[in-house]
Design a protein around this nucleic acid. Structure first.
Lengths: 223, 223
DNA sequence: ACGGCGAAATTGTGATCACATAGCCTGTGC
DNA sequence: GCACAGGCTATGTGATCACAATTTCGCCGT
């Protein structure tokens, strides 16, 4: 189920896989969270993860500690570790934070048009649409993440970008359960407008498109 | 220099000290960072911290990993750990993030006036002013942090609050060096307006006061 | 006196072990 | 049939050890 190394899968890997064992473990768990392979409430055990990944519990301990520091994993009062469960308040706050930070990141990205490849972005959006009609939630989440962070990474941000990464790690597992319940077909993102804004080098339009996209995902949750 | 347990010092401890050894180590380091006892560029070694705190390197490893996940500590390419050095771009981004998040947190806090003790806040501000004229940067930073987070904690936020905590951990060591250079006497905060806003139960005024306070700290850096 | 070279110490990483505690499952008594 | 108590297992925590890479310091040669 989980694997280390260059497990690129069908698309661009969400996180790099080079480096120490701990880094590879952390990348594997991050990708599992971002693609919804870890469901909220799922128990995560050090020895379990370690044997699943074929490593000793030690690097897993540090990777899990690193992720739980950003609330991507939850350490319960008894010490057990699990994928955090979502509450209404927490979700509302995450969306508020996303609306504050991600449009800003998009606008910053527009300052570096060289890093913003509109064609690559459009290609990613095509894959998003494919998986939307295909109904494969995991693939959809992978490419939707890739689409957003292709933009965000262009901002060359060292501070806001990690914050937003943490936010995605927090809500991704929950979104997976939502897609499992209502399906992905009802999703109507604003990616096309974002691509057009990138082509037009229009920072304001890009910011608006990202904000609209987030708001759209928010509406899906009201049902 | 560093100590574990109920090392409350002259004022309110910045972080709780109960729990596992790892938690106590992390709290100790957090407080050291927030009060500027750790200077940017300072090398942090696992065995060094461990012997200084009288524990084995193991809990230190996890605490350091947890802090470096939020960029409160920096893991250099060779694996060595140090307090991050500040760059102009990083500082600008941190201030942008603060201006986006902290006023929001202040406004949210106004929704729970029962948690906002205006008298306690005023008392904290008095201690801030004392240490300002006294010139004790470390004490000033402790009480300034306590002042801000007394407000922010009232928001009962589970998402924005940890993000802001991380931001403070990132810029606090750098601010300490700034205070060492220009002194703390030149600081003119907007705490009085914040206290008044709390007394008036005026969410908008509280948001503005916090925003003004952050902007004021920003101006100090232009010199 | 200065620069380079090599040995020694330092440091992070990973593995293994020991231990206390919290779950869990089974067996027993009512 | 069901509740409860017992032991057994799983799990996180902390310590210690081994190791490779890197840094540092002292020594030698020029």
């Amino acid at each position: 189920m989980l694997e280390l190394g260059a497990g690129s899968g069908p698309g661009a890997p969400v996180a790099a896989a080079r480096g120490s064992i701990r880094d590879r473990v952390e990348s594997a768990v991050r990708e599992a969270l971002l693609t919804g392979r870890f469901v909220p409430g799922r128990a995560v055990t050090l020895r379990g993860l370690a044997s699943e990944l074929g490593v000793s519990p030690m690097p897993v301990r540090e990777a899990v500690r690193s992720l739980s520091a950003g609330h991507a994993l939850e350490v319960r009062p008894n010490g057990r570790i699990q994928v955090p469960t979502m509450t209404e308040e927490r979700l509302a706050e995450i969306l508020k934070a996303r609306l504050l930070l991600e449009p800003e990141l998009a606008e910053m990205a527009a300052s570096y048009p060289a890093d913003l490849d509109a064609d690559a972005l459009a290609a990613l959006d095509d894959r998003v649409d494919e998986s939307l009609i295909g109904g494969d939630a995991e693939t959809y989440m992978r490419y939707n993440h890739a689409f957003h962070f292709h933009i965000y990474r262009a901002s060359r941000s060292e501070v806001l970008l990690p914050l937003v990464e943490n936010l995605w790690l927090q809500f991704a597992p929950f979104m997976r359960t939502v897609y499992g319940r209502v399906g992905t077909a009802a999703l109507d993102d604003h990616h096309k407008e974002a691509v057009q804004a990138v082509r037009d080098r229009d920072a304001g339009a890009l910011r608006s498109a990202v904000a609209a996209d987030i708001r759209c995902g928010m509406e899906l949750l009201d049902r």
